[in-house]
């Protein structure tokens, strides 16, 4: 088990290193001019050269890569020194900036997944228990439909209905209104901090702003989750140990429970993949609801050609996804006794 985990972590680190190098070269080979973006198109050649010098872009590519990875700590700290560099636009360390934006996204996506999962298990099971029946067909069409929806559009639609028409939702302008003072951060996760600081007014306000985005995201991810649970449940119900259970006359409920457990484990994989996908896909819903998550940070960095920030975002999201895959694989092994490492 420990061996398995350390091997996975090792492979993951190598993969992240390769990803960092790939991203580093890809964005520098594309025909974008970050210096011109920073100093303006009409800047004098001297100003241009000075800015280029400041950003370190006058050095050869390989030296730049070396600096980024942390082999030249006297020029600037790099990855080895646990630094993602400094944003070219704000001058703040990228790691610190990501640290304030990422929790918003993790919070949103995690809530959406918990919500989607709790809804999907009974729905997927209902479909699988009577394959080909009316309920099953309905469940199946729903899962295909939900899985192919533009969630940002549903966000706008819900804003129109719930905010403009019915007035039951707050304006889609961030987690807290500008008048509310946020609690002093402890973990960085606003919901957790609000509870720890005893600020239940903040908790209530943040939750009420999260209702619509969480509904949108969980609607979209519920499609593939239901599809997966339904399929795995059907397969589990057809397996030998269920046949055996039936033949010795176990009660239906108990058989259902065994089958569910066997169906849950493979469903974890799809949840891991979707979670990674949604970390970067949440960009759209974040910008619809102005939530200031990592996605909006990414948009800002991309439109400003802020290379260190772009590299940081891609690296951090890939790293978080890898950690989630690993955790879910371990959970899978914990629920399914047939999996041995």
């Amino acid at each position: 088990m420990l061996k398995y985990v350390s091997r996975r972590v090792g492979v993951g680190l190598l993969q992240l290193l390769a990803l960092t190098i790939a991203v580093f070269f890809i964005i520098r080979l594309l025909p974008a001019d970050p210096v011109a973006r920073l100093v303006g198109m009409n800047a004098s050649p001297e100003a241009y050269a000075q800015a280029e010098q400041q950003l370190g872009l006058h050095r050869p590519l390989l030296t730049q890569l070396g600096v980024y990875l942390g082999f030249d700590p006297e020029i600037a700290p790099g990855l080895i020194q646990a630094s993602l560099g400094v944003s070219w636009v704000t001058g703040e360390p990228v790691l610190k900036e990501i640290g304030t934006f990422l929790p918003v996204t993790l919070q949103l996506v995690t809530l959406a997944f918990v919500f989607a999962f709790v809804l999907s298990v009974p729905i997927g099971m209902a479909g699988a228990l009577n394959p080909g029946g009316g309920a099953d067909k309905g469940v199946f069409v729903y899962s295909l439909f939900a899985g192919s929806q533009p969630e940002f559009w549903w966000g706008l639609l819900l804003i129109y209905l719930c905010f403009f028409q019915w007035g039951i939702a707050p304006a889609p302008l961030g987690l807290l209104s500008p008048l509310t003072s946020a609690p002093e951060p402890i973990t960085g996760f606003l919901l957790v901090d609000a509870v720890l600081r005893g600020r239940f007014d903040v908790l209530h306000e943040a939750l009420s702003h999260l209702v619509l985005p969480v509904i949108c995201l969980s609607f979209v991810v519920s499609g593939p989750i239901i599809k997966m649970i339904r399929q795995n449940m059907m397969r589990a119900l057809q397996s030998d140990f269920i046949l055996y259970g039936r033949s010795i006359g176990l009660p239906k409920k108990r058989i259902g429970r065994y089958a569910l457990r066997a169906a849950m484990a493979p469903s974890m994989t799809i949840i891991g993949i979707l979670y990674g996908f949604m970390l970067s896909g949440a960009v759209l819903i974040e910008s619809v609801f102005s939530l200031n998550g990592i996605g909006q940070y990414a948009i800002r960095s991309v439109l400003n050609f802020d290379y260190p920030a772009i590299q940081g975002v891609v690296l951090v999201i890939a790293a978080v996804s890898l950690v989630i895959y690993l955790l879910l694989d371990l959970i899978q092994a914990a629920i399914d006794p047939r999996i041995v490492y």
Partner: peptide, 24 residues
């Protein structure tokens, strides 16, 4: 296959956004 693994670990939406915005 290893290169393909690395490509697959790119966050899809953000990578596409980066590529399009920087390439034009």
């Amino acid at each position: 296959m290893r290169v393909s693994d690395v490509l697959q670990s790119f966050p899809v939406f953000i990578s596409a956004m980066v590529l399009v915005a920087l390439a034009g």
